[in-house]
Nucleic acid binder design. Structure first.
Lengths: 191, 191
DNA sequence: CGATTTTTTGAATCATATCAACGTACGTGG
DNA sequence: CCACGTACGTTGATATGATTCAAAAAATCG
């Protein structure tokens, strides 16, 4: 499991050292190339993914054919299509590696067994989801509140290293506007 | 506790009948009048609220002074400002009853004790948060995807009874546009 | 180096906001 | 139970932020 996940779990609950090695056996380690796909719309999403390093994105394809990225997940983040994963029904999102990434996959059935064997992890996942829930409340507020230009400025201030890491057209997609408009904002900013 | 919450919990985990009565003691029953406040921006949100009946909304006040509603919670839904509740720091949202409502309040410290006494409820809350997380993924997609007019039409189709239940200016706020524009859409629709 | 991918520019257009004014309705006190 | 006042809903004129499309320029990759 390498240490990233063990450390992450221990930030939320305490686990005896001996259990860690056993818990690791529930996960499958994946090595993804840039642009490699983890999940495609229409398939059942059978795993929840923990990013050890690299970067994933969650996106869907709009009616006009363009891809809309709604979430990124970097080091120490979990990502999956929860509607698909939790109910084991077809996904409405895609998951793709933005960069070369190392990921730990926890399949639905493995998660069930894992939680039965280590109920303390129910707490871990409760806390993870609770944080995600809290984050969505902010995210949603942010989507209501900010003009596209503000969204860009705020995001650049909040995550300057991250902005460096991804191509502009992905950033534009994530922020919910067109690459053309992003160009315009950047031009305005310089002057 | 009345039965609403007990039934809700049992939809997710099984609890011995005897425990139910004891679990109920952790909650405080509140009766709210229309427009009564449960939480104000700036105060620490000390409870998580379960709606037995009635309707709550979560909102914040924008720079221009207008209220932006971001969430509603009706019967059998939990609602709180999770950023404030989970970290016990000042809230950035307000919570208010839209209608006369009956609500069960679970305070932060009561929740801690409750979870220590009944660890099975970690699972209940994990599942609640997981669902909420899944719902946010859809919600966020929906915010990216739909024009204001589509949002209105979709929402009316999806929740016709709910639309009846709330004033139009709240609906407009929730859908992220002005009451004036809502009027325009409705006028267009009739013709 | 050529070929593809990504970013920029500019013009035309559209969705939605803003402001001000007017109409309607509804609930509260007399 | 009526009347009044406040809250809610509508209309129209004007303004603006953001999109679309086409094309050129720049960057990246094999």
């Amino acid at each position: 499991m390498s240490d990233a996940l063990a450390q992450h779990i221990e930030r939320f609950v305490s686990i005896p050292k001996d259990d860690i090695a056993n818990i690791a056996t529930y996960f499958k380690k994946l090595h993804l190339k840039k642009k490699e796909n983890l999940l495609a719309e229409g398939k059942v999403c059978n795993s929840n993914y923990f990013v050890e390093n690299g970067l994933l994105r969650l996106f869907y394809v709009k009616d006009n054919g363009t891809e809309q990225t709604t979430h990124f997940a970097m080091e120490n983040w979990w990502l999956t299509d929860y509607n698909s994963f939790a109910a084991q029904k077809p996904a409405t999102f895609n998951i793709q590696a933005v960069e070369k990434s190392d990921v730990l996959a926890l399949s639905y059935t493995a998660q069930e067994k894992l939680l039965r064997e280590y109920p303390i992890l129910e707490r871990y996942f409760r806390l993870i989801h609770q944080r995600a829930h809290a984050a969505s409340q902010f995210r949603i507020r942010w989507l209501y509140d900010l003009s596209k230009e503000q969204a860009y400025n705020d995001f650049c201030n909040a995550y300057p290293e991250f902005v460096q890491r991804i191509p502009q057209y992905l950033l534009a997609s994530f922020l919910g506007f067109t690459p053309e408009y992003l160009s315009e904002i950047r031009a305005k900013r310089k002057s």
